[in-house]
């Protein structure tokens, strides 16, 4: 187990799961690393322990971790006064500033070192096994029922499963369109491009340089999609190639 990479990835996954507080991320990172160490001590294969832990984190609900506190009555009054003052202030300011929407608050840190120039490879989601529900090539479209060339593969996964970059590169496009739903397109070296469709969340920005293994978003069911899954494409010089041939790292 490469502990630095595992540590970084755990912290990253926690932030993606909605944990904003630095101290909580630090504490939970120690929790999960302790768990991995314990599993390995019990004889579990370290890679498997790491993978299963990542999956556990991806399924975490950060809202459970909020400490609820009953405010005494005088604090409520103070809070109301504060809110009213703040609202008034923003009301006065609102015409003079226009905030840019959709600016992610934290950009995931690079997760793994890799040799540049290698084609994108490995699994595009953090999941133990890949359940490919639709292969590359000619197929009947599940939605439109027409026979069409499928430009990628569909991998079934739960909504929220982390989607990761399969190679170092640059995000050239993100957004939402009717068919792909929320999508990300990444350009890699040697004329390779990867595309990720039907996401529920996008965690990167256009023009962002990313590293292989970095979490770029979450699996979803957006766009023309019958069930939660990731549509994953690899293109070489603009021509779609079979991603299945690149799934092994």
């Amino acid at each position: 187990m490469n502990s630095d990479h595992t540590t970084n990835r755990i912290s990253d996954l926690l932030r993606l799961a909605g944990f904003k507080d630095k101290h909580t991320v630090e504490e939970l990172t120690d929790h999960y690393l302790s768990h991995i160490e314990n599993e390995v001590k019990l004889g579990v294969n370290s890679q498997q322990a790491v993978r299963e832990t990542f999956q556990d984190i991806a399924n975490l609900d950060s809202s459970q971790f909020k400490v609820k506190k009953n405010l005494p009555a005088n604090r409520w009054i103070l809070l109301c006064v504060f809110l009213l003052t703040t609202l008034g202030f923003f009301f006065l300011q609102s015409n003079s500033t226009k905030e840019k929407l959709n600016t992610p608050s934290n950009t995931p840190t690079p997760l793994a070192l890799q040799i540049n120039n290698e084609p994108p490879n490995g699994a595009p989601i953090l999941q133990n096994t890949l359940d490919i529900t639709s292969d590359f090539g000619m197929r009947m479209h599940p939605y439109t029922k027409s026979r069409k060339h499928h430009r990628g593969i569909d991998i079934r996964a739960k909504i929220g499963t982390p989607v990761i970059a399969t190679g170092t590169g640059k995000v050239i496009e993100t957004g939402f369109k009717k068919k792909p739903g929320k999508y990300i397109i990444i350009q890699h070296e040697e004329g390779f491009t990867t595309k990720f469709y039907h996401l529920s969340e996008i965690a990167v920005e256009e023009n962002e340089e990313i590293k292989k293994g970095q979490i770029i978003g979450k699996v979803g069911n957006s766009g023309l999609s019958m069930m939660p899954h990731l549509h994953y494409e690899i293109l070489k010089d603009e021509i779609p190639v079979n991603p299945k041939e690149y799934l092994e790292p």
């Binding site: 971790f65 909020k66 400490v67």
Partner: peptide, 10 residues
């Protein structure tokens, strides 16, 4: 984790 940490923090 969702049980133990909020309890400790509280």
């Amino acid at each position: 984790e969702g049980a133990i940490y909020p309890t400790l923090h509280r």
